[in-house]
Write a protein that binds this DNA or RNA. Structure first.
Lengths: 215, 215
DNA sequence: AGCGACTATAGGGTTTTCCCTAAATTTATA
DNA sequence: TATAAATTTAGGGAAAACCCTATAGTCGCT
């Protein structure tokens, strides 16, 4: 059973979403929140699998902040952004804040249920419309946004840095060893995190070992 | 060939050390430094395996700082502390600053050569006298100072935290998940680092995986 | 009742990591 | 020779990790 929290300050809309979901056997709306504060409070008290979050809640900035807050503090809880806006820059900002899905408010019942199930299974949900918007908007689209399971090709330097990180060296120590600046090392470390699609060195090491880059 | 740098402001002593070492086939004194500055400069230009460091160089604080500097920036370079003092507190301070060996200035040739070779092979060198001084001085002696290769026994909580770190969670996220404070999680993380004898989470993950605590 | 291991918490501080943006140089390659 | 990929450096800023000391409650064992 997927536990869903609806965060929207429009009563009518909450009702609508809930009725759409009511048909699904494995999804249940367990919480309805009309303010940012109540969302934070609820998450602190109850385990929630998916949050359907109106990004204009009540203002766009509030929604983005709340989205960031949720994904930072409760990584198990997935956020699907709901909004009436369909511009690329907003979608990107939302994704950057950790949302796993993005739906326009004129979405269908099928799409809504599918999005909930998809994000709950650790995947991202973006329909064709959203994907199209993202793709047709310059080169800023992350190389490895999907990032799961694919083996990144490392540059020679990146491999070196990866090996040194796995030896427990700090950035400064690596810099001394490679005879480059700390900033250069930082750059390679950052590239590694991006290529492997991980948030920190701990998971980088684990992932790299599993993928046989180390050992 | 083990490259040795002697750091001492007493000319006579440098000469003495050098003549003692001259007999060894696999050890070579490549640098002699009479000031802190020259040590730093040399290390930046030349690869050194072992530094024989007079802790009173010229004052105790200077030697300790230099020792810390070397071990922090050049972890491959091992430091053997040389001094005339034999009090426990100083020994501990030196070890805390990263020295891998501690010799009194009335040491023998055999001991000197053995100390150089031992620390160069990633091990620590403390003779019976030093060990005795450390043991007979209260409970402050670290539980796992040696730490290499032995499998630590983890408490239930430590195991949990280790697993969560390996999943890439931050301290705050773990705290939320375990319903405890961030400080509590920090404590367990710190215990893990100590028990495994590693300096950071990157090496913690690698070591824990190799020892089959993870996966 | 006392001891030790485990757990949790706190305050304060330093270092390191991580993120963002930006730009110059080299090297390979189409 | 453009173009792209790789490497290097930089500055600033926010978050996280790391280190230290100190207290305190719980539990099991002696």
């Amino acid at each position: 059973m997927i536990r869903v929290l609806i965060a929207d300050d429009h009563n009518v809309f909450v009702e609508g979403i809930e009725s759409l979901i009511s048909g699904a056997p494995d999804i249940k709306v367990t919480e309805r929140c009309y303010t940012v504060e109540s969302v934070i409070e609820r998450l602190n008290q109850t385990a929630i699998d998916v949050v359907l979050l109106d990004i204009s809640f009540p203002q766009i900035e509030d929604g983005l902040n709340l989205c960031e807050h949720i994904t930072r503090l409760y990584p198990k809880t997935k956020v699907v952004a709901l909004t009436m806006h369909d511009d690329a820059s907003l979608i990107k900002r939302v994704v950057k804040k950790g949302a796993r899905g993005y739906l326009l408010k004129n979405t269908t019942k099928v799409e809504l249920l599918q999005a909930i199930q998809t994000v709950h299974h650790e995947k991202q949900y973006f329909n064709d419309t959203i994907t199209h918007i993202l793709l047709n908007d310059g080169p800023k689209t992350r190389k490895s946004t999907a990032g799961a399971g694919i083996k990144p090709n490392l540059t020679p330097r990146e491999s070196e840095v990866l090996t040194l990180i796995a030896q427990g060296l700090t950035t400064q120590q690596m810099a001394n060893q490679l005879f480059v600046s700390a900033k250069a090392v930082e750059f390679h470390r950052s590239s590694l995190l991006m290529k492997f699609g991980v948030p920190n060195t701990a998971l980088l090491i684990k992932t790299a070992m599993e993928m046989q880059y180390i050992d």
